[in-house]
Computed example of a mutant assay.
Amino acid sequence: MKLHGVLVLFITFSIASGLRCYTYFTVEPNTCTGVLTCPAGYDRCASVESEGLIVKSCLQRAECISPIKCCDKDLCNGAVPTGPGIILLLLSPALMMLFI
Protein backbone atom coordinates (compact mmCIF):
# COMPACT_ATOMS: atom_id res chain seq x y z
CA MET A 1 0.00 0.00 0.00
CA LYS A 2 2.89 2.35 0.72
CA LEU A 3 4.14 1.87 -2.83
CA HIS A 4 0.83 3.12 -4.24
CA GLY A 5 1.03 6.22 -2.07
CA VAL A 6 4.55 6.96 -3.30
CA LEU A 7 3.47 6.43 -6.91
CA VAL A 8 0.52 8.81 -6.55
CA LEU A 9 2.78 11.40 -4.87
CA PHE A 10 5.38 11.10 -7.64
CA ILE A 11 2.79 11.50 -10.42
CA THR A 12 1.20 14.46 -8.65
CA PHE A 13 4.57 16.14 -8.16
CA SER A 14 5.61 15.62 -11.78
CA ILE A 15 2.35 17.14 -13.03
CA ALA A 16 2.54 20.06 -10.61
CA SER A 17 6.12 20.91 -11.51
CA GLY A 18 5.12 21.84 -15.07
CA LEU A 19 6.25 20.98 -18.55
CA ARG A 20 9.99 20.72 -19.16
CA CYS A 21 11.43 21.70 -22.54
CA TYR A 22 14.82 21.92 -24.13
CA THR A 23 15.79 25.54 -24.58
CA TYR A 24 18.46 27.19 -26.69
CA PHE A 25 19.17 29.74 -29.36
CA THR A 26 22.02 28.70 -31.65
CA VAL A 27 23.25 27.98 -35.16
CA GLU A 28 24.88 24.71 -34.10
CA PRO A 29 22.43 21.77 -34.22
CA ASN A 30 22.81 18.96 -31.68
CA THR A 31 24.37 21.14 -28.98
CA CYS A 32 21.34 21.59 -26.75
CA THR A 33 21.70 20.56 -23.13
CA GLY A 34 19.64 23.29 -21.44
CA VAL A 35 16.34 22.28 -19.86
CA LEU A 36 13.70 24.78 -18.73
CA THR A 37 10.62 24.19 -16.59
CA CYS A 38 7.97 26.20 -18.39
CA PRO A 39 6.22 29.01 -16.49
CA ALA A 40 2.49 28.82 -15.80
CA GLY A 41 0.41 29.17 -18.96
CA TYR A 42 3.11 27.81 -21.25
CA ASP A 43 1.88 24.35 -22.21
CA ARG A 44 3.93 23.48 -25.32
CA CYS A 45 7.57 22.83 -26.17
CA ALA A 46 8.50 24.54 -29.41
CA SER A 47 11.21 24.23 -32.02
CA VAL A 48 11.81 26.37 -35.10
CA GLU A 49 14.64 26.69 -37.60
CA SER A 50 14.97 29.70 -39.87
CA GLU A 51 17.93 30.75 -42.00
CA GLY A 52 20.24 28.40 -40.10
CA LEU A 53 19.19 29.69 -36.66
CA ILE A 54 17.62 27.13 -34.32
CA VAL A 55 15.40 28.19 -31.42
CA LYS A 56 13.84 25.83 -28.84
CA SER A 57 11.74 26.99 -25.90
CA CYS A 58 8.33 26.98 -24.19
CA LEU A 59 5.28 28.49 -25.89
CA GLN A 60 1.57 28.87 -25.34
CA ARG A 61 -0.72 26.70 -27.43
CA ALA A 62 -2.11 29.67 -29.39
CA GLU A 63 1.41 30.66 -30.55
CA CYS A 64 2.04 27.30 -32.25
CA ILE A 65 1.64 28.19 -35.92
CA SER A 66 3.63 27.11 -38.97
CA PRO A 67 6.67 26.88 -39.25
CA ILE A 68 6.92 26.40 -35.45
CA LYS A 69 6.77 22.74 -34.42
CA CYS A 70 5.10 22.21 -31.05
CA CYS A 71 4.55 19.22 -28.76
CA ASP A 72 3.12 18.72 -25.29
CA LYS A 73 5.33 16.10 -23.58
CA ASP A 74 8.38 16.64 -21.37
CA LEU A 75 11.55 17.24 -23.40
CA CYS A 76 9.77 16.47 -26.69
CA ASN A 77 11.22 19.35 -28.70
CA GLY A 78 14.27 17.32 -29.59
CA ALA A 79 17.90 17.49 -28.69
CA VAL A 80 20.87 15.23 -28.52
CA PRO A 81 20.26 12.48 -25.96
CA THR A 82 22.47 13.17 -22.97
CA GLY A 83 21.76 10.06 -20.93
CA PRO A 84 22.48 6.38 -21.41
CA GLY A 85 20.93 4.64 -24.37
CA ILE A 86 18.14 2.10 -24.14
CA ILE A 87 20.65 -0.73 -24.52
CA LEU A 88 22.39 0.27 -21.29
CA LEU A 89 19.07 0.55 -19.50
CA LEU A 90 18.07 -2.95 -20.57
CA LEU A 91 21.52 -4.40 -19.90
CA SER A 92 21.46 -3.61 -16.17
CA PRO A 93 18.39 -5.72 -15.29
CA ALA A 94 19.61 -8.54 -17.54
CA LEU A 95 22.92 -8.69 -15.72
CA MET A 96 21.17 -8.60 -12.36
CA MET A 97 19.02 -11.56 -13.37
CA LEU A 98 22.09 -13.53 -14.39
CA PHE A 99 23.89 -13.06 -11.08
CA ILE A 100 20.99 -13.24 -8.62
Rank of each mutant, 00 (worst) to 15 (best):
L3C: 08
H4P: 00
L7R: 08
L7S: 09
V8N: 00
T12Y: 08
T12R: 04
S14Q: 11
I15Y: 05
A16K: 00
A16N: 06
S17T: 09
S17F: 04
G18C: 00
L19E: 00
R20S: 00
C21G: 03
C21S: 03
Y22M: 01
T23I: 07
Y24I: 06
F25D: 15
F25C: 15
T26D: 08
V27D: 15
V27Q: 15
V27I: 14
E28Q: 11
E28W: 02
E28K: 10
N30W: 10
N30L: 09
N30M: 11
N30E: 09
T31M: 13
T33R: 11
T33I: 10
G34Y: 05
G34Q: 09
V35A: 06
V35L: 03
L36W: 05
L36E: 05
L36S: 08
T37D: 07
C38M: 03
A40Q: 11
A40G: 10
G41V: 04
Y42C: 02
Y42K: 12
D43A: 10
R44W: 00
C45K: 03
C45D: 02
C45R: 00
C45S: 03
A46K: 06
V48M: 09
V48K: 05
E49C: 10
E49I: 14
E49N: 07
S50I: 14
S50K: 14
E51V: 12
E51M: 15
G52M: 03
G52A: 04
G52W: 04
L53Q: 09
I54F: 15
I54Q: 05
V55P: 01
K56F: 10
K56P: 04
C58R: 00
L59Y: 00
L59T: 12
R61Y: 07
R61S: 14
A62K: 13
C64I: 02
I65Q: 13
S66I: 14
P67F: 08
P67T: 06
P67K: 02
I68N: 04
K69E: 01
K69A: 14
C71M: 02
C71N: 01
C71T: 01
D72I: 06
K73N: 07
K73M: 07
K73F: 07
D74T: 03
C76W: 02
C76G: 06
N77C: 02
N77P: 04
G78F: 00
V80H: 12
P81M: 06
T82E: 12
T82S: 14
T82F: 09
G83V: 04
P84A: 11
P84C: 11
G85P: 03
G85E: 08
G85W: 03
I86E: 08
I87Q: 08
I87E: 09
L89E: 01
L89V: 12
L89R: 08
L89W: 02
L89P: 04
L90F: 11
L90E: 04
S92Q: 13
P93G: 07
P93K: 12
P93F: 01
A94E: 02
A94G: 03
L95S: 05
L95F: 02
L95A: 10
M96Y: 14
M96G: 12
F99Y: 14
F99A: 13
I100L: 15
I100T: 13
